[in-house]
Amino acid sequence: MSWIAFALTAWILFGLELGLKDALQLGASGVAPSFVMVLLVIVSLHAPRLTALWAALIIGVGLDLTAPLVSASGLETITLVGPKALGCLVSAYAILTMRTLVMRRNIFTIALLSLIAVSLLEIVAVFAYVSRSWFDSRLEITAGATLVAGLGAAVYTAILALPLGAALQSAMPIFGFQQSVSRPRIRRV
């Protein structure tokens, strides 16, 4: 995979994530689609295993750094690097496990996997936030509401993945995905 193409695409999609996400939000519910998670799905479907996992970590760290939490007092923000990165890693791993069973070029596959990926990301992130809030008094998380908004975002991302996934699929040659499935190693004697 071309890391330059990945970086450029991630840069654009992160920019859209910060600039457009609140405009696409359903009311004030917090339910909004994720642009970068569609990229994670495409990369996890087509890139070599290790490359996909590294790409997922990079996207996850980016999401952590662009989504600070508001402290319980409402007077400061808390930047945590880890929860979303680990969530993205779990999502990428799940897609890597499933990719041999699905039709990778089918746009509905990308939509369905986007739904699964965002759901896993939100579950892992909320679990991490809640676990941390047990000993970090600055953090106050309403797990149920956050998770419901996250799962709503998963459905919304699946809908967004139909046009965005198609656009990214058509741009796949620039990513230079050559080895989509690792070949079995032949040990020479």
Binding site: W11, F14, G15, L16, E17, L18, G19, L65, V81
Partner: peptide, 21 residues
């Protein structure tokens, strides 16, 4: 890690600013 947020936001600002506008 909070210190890493500033450069990331700076790099993303051109695209996010245009999209936000």
């Amino acid at each position: 890690v909070a210190g890493l947020r500033e450069p990331v936001m700076f790099v993303l600002a051109p695209i996010s600013n245009a999209a936000s506008f």
